[in-house]
């Protein structure tokens, strides 16, 4: 049994310690907002926060995150109030197919914690998620919009 703190709640899961966090989240905790895209930390669709920092959950064994604070896309909103990044995503109509967007939003929220008013160069350096629909123009616009919010 491995103890996990996900979106502020405690969970105990029975998983092989080498199981990637991604699959524990999706298959054992039932949080499917975090997506599988590549399994090798290339695409970022599986991005979650570990103690507030963005990590690629497909490449982190669950045993390594026991007792640490994990936040997924489902834990970002405060009740019915969207996180400002989610609101900016909605306002700027960022998603197309939407599959990569959970990971994109988690990467951006972590970036904004470090750099509340990121420049375009900060965004270029900090966001390396793949989006095959190609929403980057809206992503950039929405990041600046979110940064402009209090």
């Amino acid at each position: 049994m491995i103890g996990l703190t996900i979106n502020g709640k405690s969970h105990k899961v029975d998983a092989d310690p080498t199981t990637p966090l991604l699959w524990v989240l999706r298959e054992q905790v039932g949080l499917t907002g975090t997506k599988y895209g590549c399994g090798v930390a290339q695409c970022g669709a599986c991005t979650v926060h570990l103690d507030g920092a963005a990590v690629r959950s497909c490449s982190i064994p669950v045993a390594a995150v026991a007792g640490r604070r994990i936040t997924t896309i489902e834990g970002l909103a405060n009740g019915t109030k969207l996180h400002k990044v989610q609101q900016a995503w909605l306002d700027n109509e960022v998603p197309q197919c939407g599959y990569c967007q959970s990971g994109m939003i988690m990467a951006v929220t972590a970036l904004l914690k470090q750099k509340p008013k990121p420049t375009d160069a900060d965004i270029d350096a900090g966001i390396t998620n793949i989006c095959r629909c190609g929403t980057f123009q809206q992503v950039r616009q929405a990041i600046h919009a979110a940064a402009a919010r209090a």
Partner: peptide, 11 residues
């Protein structure tokens, strides 16, 4: 759009 920013869209 909304379910896609919440992680609620089911694929």
């Amino acid at each position: 759009t909304r379910p896609k920013v919440l992680g609620a869209q089911i694929y």
